[in-house]
Write a protein that binds this DNA or RNA. Structure first.
Length: 98
DNA sequence: ATCCTGACCAGTG
DNA sequence: GCACTGGCCAGGA
């Protein structure tokens, strides 16, 4: 596990429940590109890390869940509202940052 | 080093 | 709204 991945995971763990962040934002805070954040999160599918990373709070810049309904359901359980088109209001629910 | 692959982004038509 | 394009960054062959 590279230091960069650890940094990305730490940042995501700081996102409070009921808030979300975009790949681009997380990348800017971590000092890498948006694709790299996606790559780091993809590794979580096969690689478990402790403590757990709330990956469902990271969505794309369009306010949509990249990973389908399961991610959306998890976020709704935390208080993040989604519109009928499956998008969320980034102005209301995006985290301010660390 | 080069090429390919991604849970991406912003711009353009 | 959609599709395409170029750019972005890390990892592996």
């Amino acid at each position: 596990m590279s230091a960069l991945y650890t940094r990305v995971y730490d940042l995501i763990r700081q996102i409070p429940p009921g808030k979300v962040a975009t790949y681009g934002e997380v990348g800017a805070w971590a000092g890498c590109g948006a694709r790299t954040v996606g790559y780091a999160l993809a590794a979580l599918r096969t690689e478990r890390v402790e403590p757990p990373v709330p990956w469902q709070r990271v969505i794309n810049a369009q306010g949509k869940c990249s990973l389908g309904e399961e991610q959306q359901r998890l976020l709704e359980g935390e208080g993040v509202a989604f519109g009928p088109d499956g998008r969320t209001d980034l102005a209301r629910f995006s985290w301010d940052g660390p």
